[in-house]
Amino acid sequence: MINKQVTSPAEAVRDVFDGATIMVGGFGEAGSPIELIHALIDQGAKGLTIVSNNCGSGEVGLAALLNAERVAKVICSFPRTANSTVFPDLYHSGKIKLELTPQGTLAERIRAGGAGIPAFYTPAAVGTPLAEGKEARAFDGKTYIMERGLKADFALIKGRMADTHGNVVFNKTARNFAPIMAMAASVAVIQVERVVEPGSMDPETVVTPGIFISRVVEVPEPAHESQLVAAGVTYP
């Protein structure tokens, strides 16, 4: 009997360990799993490597995890945010490492990691500072650089609905990195607004098949980062 549903965000992140690599879904606030991130702050794991497109805003969600100094390194395409000083302050004071990766390269590294591909060649960033130290190779007269696939110990992602087998549908542009992060993580944890029984979802509409999902937790009314920031909320 397969039932991947767990009762709370706290239970969903219970075994995150110090030094873990965690992929965190979201592009800006869309798809950011705020409740799972807050549960991770409560859980206390530290020395983490975070793989995420951005670094959060205000002092909630991902920015709050960084602000709590639980993160040693981020692998990221755009850590700067207009309304957050958390990442810039940590970066300038040398308390966090940054591996800057073009957004499409970040996505493909994650996809490759989840698909069993250890490395690939991309035309993006050829001739730029982000190609320094990377193997270059010509194919059909054009130069490409080698990038490594990425894997993670955990993924924290957000969907709209899942069944207890872990089949997921998403909401609009909140899908972004979640399906590929689910593939690339040993333990993919997803928060959804509604958990349903197997058979309730049309198999033709499933976006992420349950094989990629380890844990499902229901968060019926998830917070939105911009609304928390506008309300002056900080976490913890």
Partner: peptide, 21 residues
């Protein structure tokens, strides 16, 4: 994407992928 200033926070987004493809 960057002025290369020492105190700038590096951020690239999708520009390098867009121009490459």
């Amino acid at each position: 994407w960057s002025t290369g200033a020492d105190d700038a926070i590096p951020a690239v987004g999708g520009a390098m992928d867009l121009v490459a493809g």
